[in-house]
Design a binder for these strands. Sequence first.
DNA 1: GCAAAAGTGTTCCACATACACCCATGT
DNA 2: ACATGGGTGTATGTGGAACACTTTTGC
Lengths: 251, 251
Amino acid sequence: MTATARTVPADSASADSSRADAASADSARISLAVSTVIFALRADADATAASLRLPLVRRIREPFKGRWALPGGPIEAAESLSAAAGRNLVETTGLRPTYLEQLYAFGDVDRSPGDRVVSIVYWALVRSEEADLAAEGDNVRWFPADDLPDLAFDHNTIVDYALWRLRTKMEYSRIAHAFLGETFTLSELREVHEAVLRRPIDPANFRRQMEGSKAIIATDQLLTGGRHRPPRLYRYNASVELTDNGPLTSS
Amino acid sequence: MTATARTVPADSASADSSRADAASADSARISLAVSTVIFALRADADATAASLRLPLVRRIREPFKGRWALPGGPIEAAESLSAAAGRNLVETTGLRPTYLEQLYAFGDVDRSPGDRVVSIVYWALVRSEEADLAAEGDNVRWFPADDLPDLAFDHNTIVDYALWRLRTKMEYSRIAHAFLGETFTLSELREVHEAVLRRPIDPANFRRQMEGSKAIIATDQLLTGGRHRPPRLYRYNASVELTDNGPLTSS
DNA sequence: GCAAAAGTGTTCCACATACACCCATGT
DNA sequence: ACATGGGTGTATGTGGAACACTTTTGC
């Protein structure tokens, strides 16, 4: 992460650097794209537990023709980066994200054979119920996030990083709500944590942490129809942000 | 942070999205730039404490001609994003960064009047001693990070976010070393924390936290010449990363 | 000796963990 | 009745905050 810059005489400073935010003929050759890592929790094949899954699209042209890749595309002149990512997501899956955040800008010189592409990558969470009716076909398919094939470009690296961010953020943020609907039981919320973090969590302690955090509000409703004692339904407390992104909450 | 995307028929998915990572005529109109928020700790005017400062460059052309702005410029075809940021930093200040990390990609449609510019912003830390001999002139000047004038573009927002990231990261990472030299006393390290976080820290507890973290190694040398009991010199433990950036440590 | 920073010891408290135990429901 | 998940109570441990106290230097 440390730059490999060399020292240079201090005098050469101001002339070049005053071109701040101006584009030259050089940078016009670099093309810009947006990609999105879309996570959903979906029932496993054996239906015993939910697991993290993400949709990929099959590339229909070179480079990496036939390989699976993250959904992505160019940015239109009149849309912001997050709007481009959101549009992208809708076009690929037909789903609306409940959470969308910029992940990282990937711009290594050789990440795309032939041309130079800088990809601004977003990551998103969609509700499980919605994900079940998501578009799937020959060119769009959902894969288990922890067991992907060899993807096009540096997309395996990108997914690894997105997974790391999701898991890190799950530990200190209220992000799990984004996988669930309007109301939910504490067990459902706990199962989201367990599926993402891949470890069991003590229900008793989880309850106290959540109730102490003021991130959820108990409703007066119980979920009946289960096989056992009906659990209370909770609602997300909209007055607390899902994640603390500092001064960048509104972009 | 939530996208404002609308739902769309699921069928329209694969055709467009398979253009992943390809650039169209649209995105060729968007120019790409790199900017850098460079932090150093420098002695205050009254020399009693150090404070966070950063170098800005004066814009010599429209838009925002005459306004102060973050150092930045275009990305060259053969350099990575971090290399562009590092070069940028050297050209502006003549300094070598001890820490350099991508901050965020800013790409709102109207952030630059007239044209559409996406700026990939890095933030950097440089050593205090080095910063004292940094280039400064009519078009490059250091400002206190917490008291900036009205900057060009959305650069005030960018600095606010960079400050938030620096302060957040200072709390859970070993990043403070980047402001210091090869060896340092615990007081110096603590003063870095105090200056960045703007609050006093108990020296006794700070010592135990640092020693317990294994991030620093005691040398057998004491720093003599002070007015009081000579403190021990410590060295940064290179075997632990400054920050945990997950699977992205080497880019 | 005195001032002041370096460095050590100890108490207190918040909070996470582990786990025993009671509650309410469907079968 | 009993199995099972919902929900409460409680002991133990860990780590930070607060602060008293000792050590070592310059003057």
